[in-house]
């Protein structure tokens, strides 16, 4: 039993990180119809941004803030104006390809310009572990979970309780009627892009101490976040958290009790089942067919 709990607890902590990255996915999809295949690189770039700031002598918190500002400008504003805006009217596919291009360019840029090697990254949490009911939990696990949970809840509250948040949801549900209602659609979409960039910074801060900063770290994170978003429901903020945690826990439990070689596969079977039988995701709402 103790080992089962250990697996679940560790899985939840890892899953929470996937969830933060997945959250960005769902937001972008909802508000702008963008499937961002560079989402993993959106996490990788801030990690290296912070490393560079630390390299010039900044403490971690300052490095994080500076990177957040830079990310909001580059991954939020510039990404929207330069890539998303011109392509949004051409349907999903050209934009998917463009984000693939961003992903390739970002990875190779960091590899050629910084280093191909994995780099250590300081943890925002104190070292050490504590024990609860025979389960070992590190402060990093607990901290990650708390932060991820807080982010999902506050984002949820923001979307449901504030005027801006509701306007953003209106855009997501029906862009045309939102426009008729006098909502500044472009601005709302911009907010989403900026929030996505900030979430990526947080994900970078949480994941890099464990994952290590490396030019291709985004590949795994991006894929897992993508699966998490679909499993949880592409159009539900809470869904991302559920999806991320489900993947984290399933991988551990399957890896332990069934087959470590197929643990990635079981998350995928879950993913396929969800797609085939509940394509709107576990918590998602059914979308109307658009013609």
């Amino acid at each position: 039993m103790a080992e089962f709990l250990q697996l679940v607890v560790s899985g939840i902590a890892t899953g929470a990180i996937y969830a933060v990255a997945a959250l960005g996915f769902t937001l972008m999809w909802q508000a702008a119809g963008v499937i961002n295949f560079a989402q993993g690189e959106f996490v990788m770039l801030p990690a290296f941004g912070m490393l560079m700031c630390i390299g010039v002598g900044m403490p971690l918190w300052l490095a994080f803030l500076v990177t957040c500002v830079a990310a909001a400008l580059v991954l939020g504003y510039a990404f929207k104006r330069g890539i998303a805006d011109p392509l949004i009217h051409h349907g999903v596919i050209p934009l998917v390809i463009a984000t693939l291009g961003v992903s390739i360019a970002a990875k190779s840029f960091v590899r050629s310009g910084y280093s191909a090697m994995a780099q250590q990254f300081p943890s925002p949490f104190p070292e050490g572990v504590f024990h609860v009911a025979g389960v070992t939990v590190s402060f990093a696990d607990a901290g990650t979970l708390v932060i991820a949970g807080a982010i999902v809840l506050s984002l949820q509250a923001f979307l449901n309780r504030t005027v801006t948040g509701r306007a953003m949801q209106a855009v997501a549900q029906n862009t045309e009627s939102a426009r008729v209602l006098g909502i500044d659609v472009s601005r709302m979409v911009l907010y989403v892009f900026v929030i996505n960039a900030l979430l990526a910074c947080v994900a970078a801060l949480l994941i890099t101490p464990i994952y290590l900063a490396k030019f291709d770290m985004g590949e795994t994170i991006g894929t897992k976040a993508f699966f998490a978003a679909i499993i949880g429901g592409f159009n539900q903020t809470r869904g991302a958290l559920l999806g991320g945690v489900l993947i984290g826990v399933m991988e551990n439990v399957v890896g332990y009790y069934l087959s470590p070689a197929y643990k990635e596969g079981v998350a995928l079977v879950l993913f396929l089942l969800v797609i085939l039988f509940r394509p709107e995701g576990i918590l998602g709402r059914r979308e109307e067919r658009k013609v």
């Binding site: 080992e3 250990q6 697996l7 560790s10 899985g11 890892t14 994941i207 464990i210 994952y211 590949e219 795994t220 984290g248 991988e251 551990n252 439990v253 890896g255 332990y256 470590p260 643990k263």
Partner: peptide, 11 residues
């Protein structure tokens, strides 16, 4: 590229 080694270590 595995991140979470808890199941391997528990095993």
């Amino acid at each position: 590229g595995q991140v979470d080694f808890s199941s391997a270590v528990v095993k």
